[in-house]
Every structure is written in structure tokens, then in C-alpha cells.
């Protein structure tokens, strides 16, 4: 049965990607890409990678799709049909595919127990020793936050880079002048002014949903030790809650709630929190990111270290997603204003 689902999902995957390739409407292509990501997440669940599935669903099917849609709103959704086709792309892809197909010949059978990957001393320790050594049931969290914690520091830096990159590239055309707004104007009046009666349902639903989204974000943040989740997924969920708020109540209201400058500060703060743990362990005389030294009891030290760095991850991811959202959404607002003038 499992094999059947696998085959079925994979066929869907191929159909989806071919659709992406051939469809000329970019909206459709984007939605298909989101679907492909979602199917991929299901396949990851089948392959026991629940953390990855969670992230792929949140990022590939969620955030990425939002980004693409935001971009399409700015640049238009039709691909120009093309006359001439060069044979080079096809040949190059076939060559790469051919080499990979050749590579798979000697790869061990999928799922067998005696592959080099499963027999490795590395795997052994991660699976059998980590629960005692680190005291965290979710081995993915142990490896991610402790054994390979430096990679994760790099990952946070990548997200930070993306945040400042989008801010730098999509620099706002004009500085928004605060004095344009009437001082002391309560936000709900603005909502009324912007919205139409049809917005009532989304407003109510959003008001009901957002607290739960944020609560769920907190749960994912702090439950990562025991089940799938952690700072990254939590950050995405958090950002999604705020983005939903902005979609329903308007970007300006979100900016009042969380000013751009504040987002920039917490974007940097997350990286510094993460790195700060490393600095503290260095000051205590151990190596960078060695959590054992953080407490008299190594297991408690590991717990403390993982808790703090996961907060760092969550903070930076939330801030970076908001930065990126502000960059794109702010852009369309500005364009509208410019066109209006």
C-alpha cells in the first residue's frame, strides 16, 4: 500500500513539474509549484522526515508561493511565447540527467539497513547516543542544534542575509511621512475607511484565527525538542500570522503594530542571540557553541543552549519573513500611490 501511495505521489510530482514547464500563465505555474512542494512534503512524511515535511509545506508551499504571487502582482503574469529554441538547454539537461542516472547504478537499494549511510558511526551516535548525551528525544533537533549547530548558525545567517538583501534591493522609493496621518487616529477607523462591508467575514475570521496562529507558533517553537518543529518552523508560522493580519487589516496597520525599524532590530538580534551563546561558551573557556559548559550539568547545559539558539532562530526567521513581506508589499503600495498621483 505504501509503495502504491509513493508511486501515485511521484507520478503527480512529475505531472506537476511538466505543467510548470509548459504552462504560459505564471499564476498557474506558481500554483503548480506550490502543489509540487506540497506533494513533496507528503512524500517526505512517507520517508519519515517529518521535520522536513513540516518545513517544506510551510516554506515551499506557503512562503514561496506568497512571494511569487507578490512578485507577479508587480510584474504581470504572462510569459511571452518564444519562437526560436536552442538545443543546448535540452542537451545539457540530458547530459546532467544521464550522469546522475549512471550514478544511481551503484547506489545501494533504497531503505536497506546496511547502506554506508545507515552503518556509519556518525549515524549510530546521532541515533543511539544522542538521547543520553543531549537529552532531547527529537534527534533532528539534537543534530541540528548541537552536533551541527554551526551549520544552523550559518543557516540563520543566510536568512539574515536574505532579509537585508531584500531591504537593500527593494529600497522604498519615498520615506513615508508620519505627519501625513492625523495624530491620535485610532486604527479601527482606518480599517473602516479602507474596508468594504464584504470584508466583515475575513475580519472576524482573522481576529479569531490570529491568536491561535501565534499560539501555535509558540508551541512549535518550544515543542521542537519533543516533536517536529523548532525555531525555523515557528518563525514562519509567526510571520504568517502577522502577514494574515496585514492582508486583512492593511499594511499600514501592521507597520504601526510592528514598525520596520523594529523588525530590522530583531532581525539582527536573532543572529546575535545565536552567536552570543557561542561567545558565552568561549568566554567560559570552551569552544564556540559548546553548550556543555553553560551549566554544571552537561545535559542541562545542552538544554539551555538549544533553547536559546532556537529562540534566536525563531526571532530572525520571523523578522526576515516580515522584512521580505514589507519589501514586496510596500513596493506595490508605493507603485499604487505613484500611479495615483
Amino acid at each position: 500500500m505504501e509503495e502504491f501511495t509513493d508511486v501515485f505521489l511521484m507520478v503527480l510530482l512529475i505531472v506537476g513539474t511538466l505543467g510548470v514547464l509548459y504552462v504560459n500563465n505564471l499564476f498557474v505555474a506558481t500554483m503548480l509549484l506550490g502543489a509540487v512542494s506540497l506533494i513533496m512534503a507528503l512524500i517526505f512524511v512517507n520517508l519519515d522526515a517529518v521535520d522536513v515535511a513540516f518545513t517544506e509545506a510551510a516554506v515551499g508551499a506557503g512562503i514561496s508561493t506568497v512571494l511569487y504571487l507578490g512578485t507577479l502582482a508587480l510584474v504581470g503574469a504572462n510569459e511571452k511565447p518564444r519562437g526560436k529554441r536552442s538545443p543546448i538547454p535540452l542537451l545539457a539537461s540530458l547530459l546532467v540527467g544521464g550522469i546522475l542516472a549512471y550514478a544511481t547504478l551503484d547506489l545501494p537499494k533504497i531503505g536497506s539497513v546496511d547502506t554506508p549511510v545507515q552503518m556509519s558511526e556518525v549515524t549510530e551516535r546521532y541515533v543511539y547516543t544522542s538521547p543520553e548525551e543531549i537529552g532531547v528525544p527529537n534527534m533532528v533537533t539534537s543534530v541540528l542544534a548541537s552536533y551541527r549547530g554551526f551549520d544552523t548558525f550559518g543557516e540563520v545567517t543566510v536568512i539574515f542575509t536574505a532579509g537585508i538583501a531584500v531591504l537593500l534591493i527593494l529600497r522604498q522609493l519615498h520615506r513615508r511621512r508620519e505627519d501625513e496621518e492625523t495624530p491620535g487616529n485610532p486604527p479601527f477607523q482606518k480599517v473602516k475607511a479602507e474596508g468594504s462591508p464584504h470584508d466583515l467575514v475575513p475580519h472576524v475570521v482573522a481576529k479569531l484565527l490570529i491568536p491561535f496562529i501565534l499560539l501555535f507558533g509558540l508551541y512549535v517553537q518550544f515543542h521542537g525538542d519533543f516533536g517536529p518543529g523548532g525555531g525555523f518552523q515557528a518563525g514562519v508560522i509567526f510571520a504568517a500570522g502577522f502577514i494574515l493580519y496585514s492582508l486583512v487589516f492593511g499594511l499600514d496597520n501592521l507597520k504601526k503594530l510592528i514598525p520596520v525599524h523594529f523588525v530590522e532590530i530583531i532581525l539582527a538580534a536573532g543572529v546575535l542571540i545565536y552567536g552570543g551563546v557561542g561567545v558565552v561558551s568561549m568566554l567560559k573557556g570552551a569552544n564556540f557553541l559548546d553548550y556543555n559548559i553553560l551549566s554544571a550539568d552537561p545535559i542541562a547545559g545542552q538544554h539551555l543552549g538549544i533553547l536559546i539558539i532556537e529562540i534566536g532562530v525563531g526571532v530572525t526567521v520571523t523578522a526576515a519573513m516580515l522584512c521580505i513581506f514589507y519589501g514586496f508589499a510596500g513596493r506595490s503600495d508605493e507603485l499604487e500611490k505613484n500611479n495615483g498621483e
Binding site: 537585508i164 530590522e264 543572529v271 546575535l272 552567536g275 557561542g278 568561549m282 564556540f288
Partner: peptide, 23 residues
Amino acid sequence: ALFSQAPILAIVIPLMGAPISAL
């Protein structure tokens, strides 16, 4: 003690300097 940390310091100083500079 400082030198024993030199390998990581050479990388982490610019790495953590980035968020500080961004502020």
C-alpha cells in the same frame, strides 16, 4: 587562551559584525 580560539574568531568576528553593522 585567545589564540586557541583564533580559528573561529577569524570567521565569527566578521559574521557577527554584520548584524551589528546593519543596526
